[in-house]
Amino acid sequence: MNPVEELHVSHAPAQLAEVEFHSPSTNDFWLPLFEVGGLEFTRGMLVIVLVTGLLVAWMLWAAKRAAVVPSKGMFVTEGIYNFARNDIARDLIGGQKFKPYLPLIFSLFVFVLVNNLLGVIPPVQMPTMSSIAFPLALTLVVYLTYHVAGIKQHGLVGYLKTFVPSGLPAPIVPVVFLLEFVSKTITQPLTLVLRLFGNMLAGHMALALFIMGGWFLVNSGPLMAIAGAGSWIMGLLMTFFEILIQCLQAYVFTLLSASYIGAALADDH
């Protein structure tokens, strides 16, 4: 082997790293499985269907296992339900007004939580909320709920009046009304969507970067394998941190949803 060939071989890992490694991007989250009538059915849609089926089966099982002395499984189920009921719905909506909206609040919490956790649970490892269409659909349900609830409670004109606190000087009433109208119709739903979507997207991309980068470094030579192992360790640590964020974001999404409903039902601003 001549010196030129030896130099080429010795630099093969660096060349391989430069040519073949591709950092994760948003395109990696669009994973079509098959096409029906020109519409693609993606992996995220499949996960949503699986989660829905899982939750329906869980609720049916819980309904059949209801007892005065709950089993361990029922104890966990009742704990989650009581958390959604007492610490979210009742605290944020208040009084007896929360009861009609409790099924929605509980469903939102467990649905978002399970979908988020599947982002780190093999073999799924697909955070469906990292695709903006899913949090957008959930937010649309919340958006319609709190506006309809407010109109039903106060009437259309009365609901619009709640946008402005009583006792304000007349000249600033239009300004405050405009700000509140924009907040309730645009800002609130927009932040609800982007907070959940952004956290799930960023977290999964960070995990993918550490894991994919570690795998590539391990296969790029003995020295680079040390850095690859470090990348995997960081990926493991990030996984535990991501689980915390996933639970927190399910809680925050449900908490804000309940607060918007409670604000729409409130008698004063």
Rank of each mutant, 00 (worst) to 15 (best):
F240W: 12
I132W: 02
R195W: 06
A17K: 04
G235Y: 05
L248G: 10
Y81T: 04
V9K: 14
G95W: 02
L196P: 02
L117K: 00
G228Q: 04
Q246V: 02
L104R: 02
L118V: 00
W215V: 07
F253V: 03
I151P: 05
M234K: 09
S71L: 05
K161T: 10
V157S: 14
V76G: 02
L118T: 00
A63V: 06
Y143D: 11
H269N: 14
F34P: 05
K72V: 07
F111I: 00
S23Y: 09
L16N: 13
W215L: 13
A250L: 08
L201V: 11
Y251M: 04
V124G: 01
N27H: 10
F253C: 03
L31N: 05
V49F: 12
L209I: 01
P127V: 03
A225S: 15
K152H: 13
L207G: 03
L144R: 10
L217W: 07
V114P: 00
L16R: 12
S166G: 15
F181T: 13
Y146T: 11
A250P: 06
L92V: 05
V173S: 08
S259L: 10
E18S: 11
G262F: 06
Y143A: 11
D87F: 09
L190R: 03
Q153S: 15
P123T: 05
G228L: 04
C247A: 13
T128N: 02
P122H: 01
L60N: 09
L244T: 07
T185H: 15
F29W: 04
T77D: 09
F181N: 08
A89M: 10
I243W: 01
